[in-house]
């Protein structure tokens, strides 16, 4: 009786996911190399064809967020493909992306001044199914605007990353996840110097999944989870997940 019930629940879960159009296409799986993080997602896989939201409040956090996004994008691009990076005030220094395994020449930057234009450009880019990913940098994103973006990716299966730097309010959006990335002290052992980039990755919200926080390092071209005490898991679990 017990296994049968388990099967029914799994079956129902799959149907619910399909209804919510979160079902991924065949052979379209992103291997982040982060087993623990993937467990937080529905279906145990990083959601593609969805819009992810990143929030940062300080310049150092913004750089860490860009680094983490670059790591994800390099996996998505898989040495080929072109991504579009739309922003209002771009600070990305293209040569640094090479560290994350991205050929910076494959990134098309669209630099705009007005928030309205940025949203339009992001939406147009998200509709272009030839792109594996689109990155948008802007500060404010209302629920309606995020809904439009989410509807665009449901058609085109493009993965969108929205990086909100210093937003006025962390309002509810229609994005499937909300992340917050902060830099952590790098580990060099007894050696002098600065080590590999290391972040405290917080998954604050995830639709149909379980939020969490992990310490992650980028080294030798891939993500590695660092065993360490979680800094803010407790704080997150107190919050109601969206």
């Amino acid at each position: 009786m017990q296994p049968a019930k388990q099967d029914i629940i799994q079956q129902l879960q799959k149907e619910v996911l399909a209804m919510q159009r979160l079902k991924r296409g065949a052979g379209h799986i992103l291997s982040t190399g982060l087993r623990e993080v993937e467990k937080a997602f529905p279906d145990q896989a990083f959601p593609l064809g969805a819009v992810h939201e990143f929030i940062s409040n300080a310049k150092a956090d913004a750089a860490a967020t860009s680094g983490f996004m670059a790591g994800l994008i390099s996996q998505l691009m898989q040495k080929s493909g072109t991504v579009v990076w739309v922003s209002t005030r771009r600070t990305i220094f293209p040569p640094a992306l090479a560290v994350f395994g991205i050929d910076p020449g494959r990134i098309i930057f669209i630099d705009l001044w007005r928030q309205k234009d940025v949203l339009w450009a992001i939406e147009e880019a998200l509709k272009c199914s030839a792109l594996p990913a689109v990155i948008g940098e802007l500060s404010e994103l209302s629920f309606t605007e995020s809904r439009r973006l989410q509807l665009a990716v449901e058609q085109s299966r493009v993965t969108g990353f929205i990086h909100r730097y210093n937003p006025k309010s962390e309002n509810i959006t229609a994005c499937v996840t909300r992340w917050k990335i902060q830099p952590l002290m790098s580990e060099t052992g007894s050696m002098p110097g600065v080590g590999f980039p290391r972040w405290n990755v917080q998954l604050l919200k995830v639709r149909n999944g379980k939020p969490g926080a992990w310490q992650i390092e980028w080294s030798e071209g891939s993500f590695k989870q660092v065993a360490g005490q979680d800094i803010s898991v407790a704080a997150i679990q107190k919050r109601k997940a969206g």
Binding site: P94, P95, P104, F109, I110, D111, D117, W120, E124, A130
Partner: peptide
């Protein structure tokens, strides 16, 4: 896609970088 962006927002908005 880039034509559409350039048509609406101007071609100077689009950049690609080479070493």
């Amino acid at each position: 896609l880039l034509d559409r962006v350039a048509g609406k927002l101007g071609v100077q908005a689009i950049h690609r970088y080479l070493p």
